[in-house]
Write a protein that binds this DNA or RNA. Structure first.
Lengths: 226, 226
DNA sequence: GTACGCTGTATTGTTGACAATCCGTGTGTT
DNA sequence: AACACACGGATTGTCAACAATACAGCGTAC
C-alpha cells in the first residue's frame, strides 16, 4: 500500500500494472464482475486512465468487456489452460532454438548461474513454491529474450505467461516435480551452450509437454478445479 | 467516407478499427509520427475514445508510444518481418494439426469450396492480387478458427496477421507463386480431411517456410526495401 | 400463474476544459 | 563558431461533469 510510485510512467501504465498483477495474483477472481468506480477508489485513479488500462487488458485477453454492461475478469476453463500449454510448446520450442543460435556466451553463463541458485534453493528445501512460481518463470523469461525475436518475446512475456501464471498461483507443485524440472532445464541449457538449436527445441517442447501432462493429471484427479 | 456506422459498438471500438485498417493499408506510413488532435479531426472522434484505442493498438504492437512525446506507427525491419514468419510457422503448424483433429466435416467442405473459388479466380487471371491478399488470408483464417484453440486463433488473427498484412500490401506477388501456394493449400486440406494431424502440421510449416524464403529472396534482390 | 412490457436507477460511454511535460528556438557564453 | 541553457509554444496526460444505455423490479395483461 505504498503511496510512493515511479513518476516516470503515466497513470494509465500504473493502472495497467496494478490490474494485471491483481488479476494474476487472484485478488480479482476469474469471472468476477468489477465496476469502474470501485476500481478507481481501490487504486486511487480516475476513470480516464483506468479505461485506457481496461482497453489494454481486454486486448490482451485478460478481461472481457460488453458495451454498457461492465467488465469482468476472464475465466479460463481447464481445456483452455491445456490449450495454452500446447501453444507454449511450439512457441517456446522456437524460442529455445533461436536462443541456441543467438544467445551470447555471457547470457549462457548467467543462465547457468541462475540454475545453480535454483538448485541450492531446492536443496535447502525452503522455497519450493518460489522456485515453481518465480524461478521457473525466470528461466523461461531468459530464453524468450535470448531468442532475439522481438515479437516472439513480446507474445510470450506479454500474453501467455500472464495467463499461465494466473493459474499457477493456485496450483500446488507436485512432490518431485521441481527437481525433475530443474534437470530438464539443465539439459536445455547444455544444448544451447553447444549451439544445438534442434536439440534445444526438442528438449524444450518435451519439457513443456511434461508440465502439461502434470496439470492434466491433476485436473483428472480433481485436485485442480477451474 | 461513409458517415453511416454501426451503432451497436462503441466509439472506441470504431476508432480502433479505423486506425487498425489505416495502419494495415498503409494510409498511416510506418515510422510516421501522428498527433492525437490530427487523428481526432481525421476520424471525427474526441480524444477520450481515441486514447483508449491507441492503448489497445500499442498493446498489440502496431504502434509505439513514448510518454508526452507522442505516438508513431511501428516500423518493422526486414529482419523482424522474417521473424514474424518463423513464428507463424510453428503456430500455424499447431493450428493445422488441431484443425485436422477438430474441424467438422462441414467446415472441411467449405474449405474445399473456398479453394475451388480461388482456383477459378487464378485461372481467369483476374485477381491474382486478390488471391494473394485476401484469398490466402481467408484460408489461414479458417484453419486458425478451425483449430478450436481460442487463444491460438486470437493470437494469429488479432496480432500476427495484421502485422504481416501491413507489409503484404506493398509486396508484389511472384509470378508463379499463387498457383504454387494453391497447390500447397490443397495438400494441407487433404491431410486435414484424412484427419492426419501430423501431416497437416508438416505441410503447413513447409508452406509458410516457402513463403518466407520467397520474401527473403526478394529482400536480397532489393525488390523489397523496408 | 406466467409472461411481457414499462419505468427508475445505476453504471458505462463521452465530452470539453485544465494541468503537466517535452521539443524547438533563441540567446548568451566559452 | 559551437555548445549549453532557458523560455515559449504545442502536445500529451488528467480530471470532473454530462449523456446514453442496460439491468432490475414492478405492474399489468393474457
Amino acid at each position: 500500500m505504498a503511496e510512493v510510485q515511479l513518476q516516470t510512467q503515466t497513470r494509465a501504465d500504473e493502472a495497467f500494472d496494478c490490474l494485471q498483477t491483481a488479476i494474476v495474483k487472484g485478488d480479482l477472481a476469474p469471472g468476477e464482475k468489477i465496476g469502474e468506480v470501485e476500481l478507481c477508489s481501490r487504486f486511487n485513479l480516475t476513470r480516464g486512465p483506468l479505461r485506457e488500462a481496461l482497453g489494454r487488458l481486454e486486448s490482451r485477453g485478460l478481461l472481457v468487456r460488453r458495451p454498457h454492461a461492465g467488465v469482468k475478469v476472464v475465466s479460463v476453463s481447464a481445456d483452455e489452460l491445456i490449450e495454452l500449454y500446447r501453444i507454449r510448446e511450439v512457441m517456446e520450442g522456437l524460442a529455445a532454438r533461436q536462443a541456441a543460435e543467438r544467445m551470447t556466451d555471457e547470457e549462457i553463463r548467467d543462465l547457468r548461474a541462475t540454475l545453480d541458485s535454483h538448485e541450492t534453493m531446492i536443496e535447502e528445501a525452503r522455497g519450493q513454491a518460489y522456485y515453481q512460481a518465480e524461478g521457473d518463470y525466470d528461466f523461461h523469461h531468459r530464453i524468450a529474450t535470448g531468442s532475439r525475436n522481438t515479437k516472439l518475446a513480446q507474445m510470450l512475456l506479454g500474453d501467455l505467461y500472464y495467463m499461465v501464471r494466473m493459474y499457477r498461483y493456485r496450483l500446488s507443485t507436485s512432490a518431485g516435480r521441481p527437481h525433475m524440472a530443474l534437470g530438464e532445464h539443465r539439459r536445455i541449457v547444455e544444448a544451447i551452450a553447444q549451439r544445438d538449436g534442434e536439440l534445444a527445441e526438442f528438449l524444450m517442447k518435451r519439457h513443456i509437454n511434461a508440465a502439461r501432462q502434470n496439470i492434466e493429471k491433476k485436473i483428472q484427479e480433481g485436485v485442480l478445479t477451474i
